[in-house]
């Protein structure tokens, strides 16, 4: 298994968008969710993750708001906007098609 996967930026954005699909989360929750969901197989620098969050906020795909965390601390919560939701759908489709094409190639032995 690749331990140091050089993730395309678009893929990172896709993962972050997916992590926010079910409601607002703060940065740490997004990072934890990705780590556990991928069984820690994707080694993502969390710094890059925050950059992705802020960049998508600037693009208007996410909205951020200060709120209280489960342990009553001030945390910055991110939430998908309508544009973000659309992006998630589009990126997911592209990625799936891409992956299945690559997979098809690999299957022909």
């Amino acid at each position: 298994m690749p331990t140091d996967l050089d993730l395309l930026q678009g893929t990172l954005d896709l993962l972050v968008l997916k992590a926010l699909q079910w409601g607002p989360r703060h940065g740490y929750a997004v990072a934890s969710w990705i780590r556990t969901t991928t069984d820690e197989r994707l080694q993502i620098e969390e710094g890059a993750l925050y950059t992705s969050l802020h960049r998508m906020e600037k693009r208007g795909w996410l909205e951020a708001e200060w709120g209280l965390s489960e342990n009553n601390r001030r945390a910055r919560y991110y939430q998908l906007t309508a544009a973000g939701r659309k992006q998630l759908g589009a990126k997911a489709t592209i990625w799936t098609e891409y992956a299945s094409a690559v997979f098809k190639v690999l299957e022909t032995t």
Partner: peptide
């Protein structure tokens, strides 16, 4: 370690914001 270069990330985030 998990986070990577904190200082650079901080600057990058500030720029974006």
């Amino acid at each position: 370690r998990r986070f990577g270069d904190v200082q650079r990330t901080r600057e990058r985030l500030a720029t974006i914001d």
